[in-house]
């Protein structure tokens, strides 16, 4: 469009540009800078090229963390997406019940990450935690500090508790946007409850679900505080995910170069998975057309 031009507008955009530069571009460049150098002290550094990257990709500990990370992310997605849809379908549509249920469902989302970890840490303790104590009373030798399976199951349960509401909320809003006429038409066509879900509700939920899956994937791929508080990554390294490995390397061992390289790999993996997922969904929708 040939709008009437006014160059003053650039001044209005400038603060935003500066903000983005400081918050994203400059830190990222710093990381890139470290990843190709070996830093001994502020005055001594060598250029290492891709050396750190090669080393990181070959590190068995990190490979293990990466596999665990994928396993974790896919498991929680496989549980949270169907569960979230299910909850959204069951939520009341209007009236005070709708508001009440909405508040109750949203509550876990309001709790900070490390508090969630603490809550579950106490909850699962064998002596005073309701769940830990209860399971033991029932005769199951539940112990998240010794049994990797228990630790895993608990972390997944915790994440499902914490984040399924997000999927439920997204789906709830998606369901609300379906015009009443669609349900009327389906009733007139004598569609079964399943057919209504399959042919009306699910197609209309596709868009919000794409957002939900992407958000949850990125989120879960970066999970840090909750397992750190709950299991500390153990027993052994059975619940040490990528971000915790990175933190150990960067902070505890102060290996700036390798951890910078690792950060970039980490970042690229997330980017790649999201891109692949997004493109796949978009192509799927195009195929329909």
């Amino acid at each position: 469009m040939n709008k009437v031009q006014s160059n003053k507008a650039w001044f209005l955009v400038l603060p935003m540009l500066l903000l983005v530069a400081f918050s994203a571009i400059i830190p990222l460049m710093t990381v890139v800078n470290y990843s190709v150098q070996d830093v001994f002290d502020p005055n001594t550094r060598f250029f290492t090229g891709t050396e750190w990257f090669v080393a990181m990709l070959n590190d068995p500990a990190l490979q293990g963390a990466l596999l665990r990370q994928f396993a974790f992310s896919f498991t929680i997605l496989a549980i949270q997406i169907p569960l979230g849809i299910g909850i959204a379908l069951l939520m009341p549509k209007q009236g005070w019940r709708a508001s009440l249920v909405l508040i109750l469902v949203t509550l876990p989302l309001l709790i900070p990450w490390n508090v969630v970890g603490s809550i579950w840490q106490i909850f699962t303790r064998g002596d005073i935690g309701l769940m830990g104590w209860g399971l033991r009373e029932l005769g199951y030798g539940y112990n998240i500090t010794r049994n990797p399976l228990d630790a895993w199951a608990t972390i997944i349960l915790m994440d499902v508790w914490h984040w399924t509401p997000l999927i439920a909320l997204l789906c709830y809003s998606g369901l609300r946007s379906i015009p009443e006429a669609y349900y009327q038409a389906a009733r007139i066509d004598r569609a079964s409850r399943w057919a209504v879900f399959r042919y009306i509700q699910l197609p209309k939920l596709t868009n919000v679900l794409v957002i939900g899956v992407l958000l949850r994937f990125m989120h879960s791929f970066m999970i840090y505080a909750e397992p750190f508080v709950l299991t500390g990554g153990g027993p052994g390294s059975s619940t040490t995910f990528l971000s915790q490995s990175l933190a150990i390397m960067a902070i505890a061992q102060f290996d700036v170069g390798p951890s910078a390289a690792f950060s970039l790999i980490y970042f690229l993996i997330i980017l790649l998975v999201c891109w692949v997922f997004y493109t796949a969904i978009m192509n799927l929708q195009k195929d329909k057309s």
């Binding site: 015009p179 006429a181 669609y182 009327q184 038409a185 009733r187 007139i188 009306i200």
Partner: peptide
């Protein structure tokens, strides 16, 4: 209810699957 009345309805905005 509508499904027991043997009627069909065409709405203002097209309703299709």
């Amino acid at each position: 209810p509508p499904e027991e009345r043997n009627i069909a309805q065409v709405f203002q905005f097209p309703v299709i699957y």
